[in-house]
Amino acid sequence: MARRAEAGNKKRISAEEWQRKLREVRVAKEDMNRVVMNFLVTEGYVDAARVFERESRTAPGVDLEQITDRMEIRKAVQSGDVEQAIERVNDLDPEILEQGHELFFHLQQQRLIELIRQGQLAEALEYAQEYLAPRGEDHPELLQDLERTAALLVFEDVGSSPLADLMDVAQRQKTASELNAAILASQSQEAEPKLPNLLKLLMWAQKQLDEKAVYPRVDNLVTAELHVDGGN
């Protein structure tokens, strides 16, 4: 391997030395716990967050009830029940859809898609006229998307039309994620947990270090085992 071949020019750090250096870095346990809690809360693992709160005495920083709501709203979109999702978001915080024009449009678009998927074409047509069409007048920036969505009503077999992507499950996921991020933002929370980013930073830092030194690496993030390269 290339790394091994170049090893001669690089600084070599033994396992013992590495361990000693690691021990010198002090990371407060509370900080670690907060990172974990942040992950549980953001990803919506309410039960785990509750247990973790009890065991580690780390404050979740948000109302855990709201997480349940958020998860159920996401689930509703993922399972195609957009109407229920809209109602629950409005119960949670009416401002989210009052102010988020684009998000609301995407939800309405999804609603239309679901009606078409269920073959309720008359309802779909009425919904498009009553709710979607006026949005184009108020928000011209949505017009193009709006026309594309309305075209769904034209094709007999949407699945084989150029608009097939809209009917895909991935579209549901996209809408669900957008809504989830908006709810998190309304609660002043990041849309992404901090942990994945920290791990990305770890990988990046190791890559930088690989250029200069041979040291015990973390190759497997799941086990976080230190792997000493270069035949030590």
């Binding site: 809209i86 109602e87 988020g100 609301f104 006026p134 007048e137």
Partner: peptide, 14 residues
């Protein structure tokens, strides 16, 4: 009440 609320939120025309 619920229905009307859900109709009007985010909908100027409604």
């Amino acid at each position: 009440l619920r229905c009307i609320k859900n109709c009007v939120i985010g909908n100027r025309r409604q």
